[in-house]
């Protein structure tokens, strides 16, 4: 499978801080779901920001398909990569439909910018609302949504971008198990039916084992383990990473690895 994103010795340092990423290399194959795991402060969110092009690496290169990410223009990049952020501020209250339609900005032509939006944008927004089950919320305001609804709206915004690549930063944090599962199922269908490439920073190792194809385990800015989820979750190094002992089980229905705390 072709590489959608590839990183070559990427280094990143926050202003005034220690190295947040050091020597990160690896490839994310097209149409796969990659989880980035690791303890707090390991550099997961930073890695996603560098992959999104929000932050430029101090050294090394991030490539999107065959070109360095830094050579893409902002609009061009937004047609390739969409991001579901961990949380957003909304100091002033937009409606759900407005937020989802922000996902279309990178596809606005000049006449869309000056006048009324073309029909194709309305259709894309409708189908993103339908895919995420947020159509009933479309006239609500963001401040009136629950945490789970807000996450689905942000996913709808990212889907309206119609990008082949999705970056998710802790997408189910603050969600109850029902809503978390609902969200992950929607992402699973996107990977399966639309061959989207998904990179997801995540904490829950059980979920990662059930849903994701590959895992990068990070520790202090480095990728210390990388591979198919089964082999990473079974690797003895993982216990040292978290400073914990795990019980290794196999999911009775899906036959996939599960890690439990004893």
């Amino acid at each position: 499978m072709a590489a959608a994103l590839s990183l070559d010795h990427v280094e990143f340092r926050w202003p005034g801080g220690q190295a947040a990423l050091s020597g990160v290399s690896g490839t994310v194959s097209e149409g796969t779901w990659l989880a980035v795991i690791g303890p707090n402060g390991a550099g997961k969110s930073t890695l996603l920001k560098v992959m999104a092009g929000w932050e430029r690496p101090a050294a090394g290169t991030v490539r999107l398909w065959d070109r360095p990410l830094s050579t893409y223009r902002i609009r061009e990049r937004a047609r390739a990569i969409a991001v579901v952020p961990q949380r957003v501020g909304h100091p002033y209250d937009l409606t759900v439909r407005t937020v989802v339609s922000l996902g279309r900005i990178s596809r606005h032509r000049w006449w869309d910018r000056v006048g009324r939006l073309g029909e194709e944008h309305a259709q894309a927004v409708e189908s993103a609302l339908a895919l995420t089950g947020t159509r009933d919320l479309s006239e609500r305001r963001m401040s009136q949504l629950s945490g789970g609804e807000e996450k689905r709206v942000l996913l709808a915004m990212a889907l309206a971008q119609e990008t082949p690549i999705l970056l998710l930063d802790e997408p189910t944090a603050f969600l109850d198990p029902g809503h978390a599962r609902d969200f992950l199922e929607r992402v699973r269908l996107l990977v399966r039916d639309q061959a989207k490439t998904v990179v997801m920073a995540y904490h829950d190792l059980v979920t990662v084992g059930l849903y994701c194809d590959g895992i990068w385990a990070m520790d202090r800015g480095r990728v210390v383990l990388a591979g198919p989820s089964g082999s990473v979750l079974n690797h003895p190094e993982l216990q040292r990473l978290y400073g914990l002992e795990f019980m290794r089980l196999t999911h009775p229905r899906h036959r996939r690895p599960m890690l439990l705390f004893p």
Binding site: A82, P85, L102, V114
Partner: peptide, 25 residues
């Protein structure tokens, strides 16, 4: 302001979100 009005909506969501949906912030 005319061609910027929808970009302003995106800026309300924060610079990172605006950037990721394609606003030249």
């Amino acid at each position: 302001l005319v061609p910027e009005r929808r970009h302003m909506n995106a800026l309300l969501m924060g610079e990172d979100v605006a950037l990721s949906v394609g606003v030249p912030v």
